[in-house]
Computed example of a mutant assay.
Amino acid sequence: MTKSLLSSWSRGILLLFILTIFSYSTYAEEQDSSKHKAVDPVDFVKHTSSIRVSLIAPTLTFQYEKPIGPKTVFDVNAGLLVSFGLNKPTVDIDPYGDLDANARYLVLMPLISVGVKHFYNIENRLRKNKSIENNSANYFGGRLHGPMIGWIRETKNTNAEKSKRIQFSSRTAVGLVAMWGMNRNLGNNFNFNLEVGPSLVYNLDSEIAPSFWLHVGFSKTF
């Protein structure tokens, strides 16, 4: 009975000793790892100043991001959008002929937007030793665009007769976007940018219209 008790006691001490060594080893590894992976929250996002170019609807904007939280930035964009359009109607005017007409549009619109972006995976990227340079991470956010006003240049060609007209559109509109996006640093402070999401456009002369926001482009941070 005594030998059995001593044997159990010895096994218990040995097991406790092994667990203690294992726990200490694991703790030491975690501490050593944390020396390389510990992150000060203020380092998650940085303020950035960039020039952005969009490839879908040609735009050139200046972007400024200012941290307002460990993973959240206040985002401001200001610049210019260039849009092209082509309309080619054919209208019957008599049984023997048609009115051949086409029109081309060039729109120049100043762009101003403010928004908030939350980089939800920036900490994980840093812990996996992935680059977060220039806030390279995925994010959710919202953005308000407006006022949407601009200059329209219209060139019409009606039966080989050309006419041109330039006018300033005063039909003010604003847009609200809910977006998912991503930034990726390509090196030398060049970045790839992608944003997608539903949006609502409100024209002061009409009702609210649903739309879709898509931005694919590049930026240069300085």
Rank of each mutant, 00 (worst) to 15 (best):
I68A: 07
G69D: 15
G69R: 08
G69L: 07
G69W: 12
P70Y: 06
P70A: 13
P70C: 01
P70R: 06
K71S: 12
K71H: 06
T72P: 14
T72W: 08
T72Y: 08
V73H: 01
V73R: 03
F74Y: 11
F74P: 04
F74I: 01
F74N: 04
F74K: 04
F74R: 06
D75H: 14
D75P: 01
D75N: 15
D75T: 04
V76Q: 06
N77F: 03
N77A: 00
A78M: 14
A78V: 14
A78Q: 04
G79P: 07
G79D: 04
G79H: 10
G79A: 06
G79Q: 09
G79N: 06
L80I: 15
L80C: 13
L81P: 00
L81N: 11
V82E: 01
V82M: 11
S83V: 03
S83Y: 08
S83P: 00
S83A: 11
S83I: 02
F84M: 07
G85C: 05
G85V: 12
G85K: 11
G85T: 10
L86Q: 13
L86E: 15
L86W: 06
L86S: 13
N87I: 05
N87L: 05
K88V: 11
K88E: 15
P89Y: 01
P89L: 02
T90S: 09
T90R: 12
T90Y: 05
V91L: 09
V91M: 06
D92W: 05
D92P: 10
D92Y: 05
I93N: 01
I93D: 00
I93Q: 05
I93G: 00
I93E: 03
D94M: 03
D94E: 13
D94K: 02
P95M: 04
P95Y: 08
P95S: 07
P95A: 08
Y96R: 07
Y96H: 12
Y96V: 02
Y96W: 11
Y96P: 00
G97N: 15
G97P: 00
D98S: 08
D98T: 10
D98H: 12
D98I: 10
L99Y: 05
L99P: 00
L99G: 02
L99Q: 09
D100K: 09
D100G: 00
D100N: 14
A101K: 12
A101H: 11
A101M: 14
A101R: 10
A101D: 05
N102F: 13
N102A: 02
N102H: 15
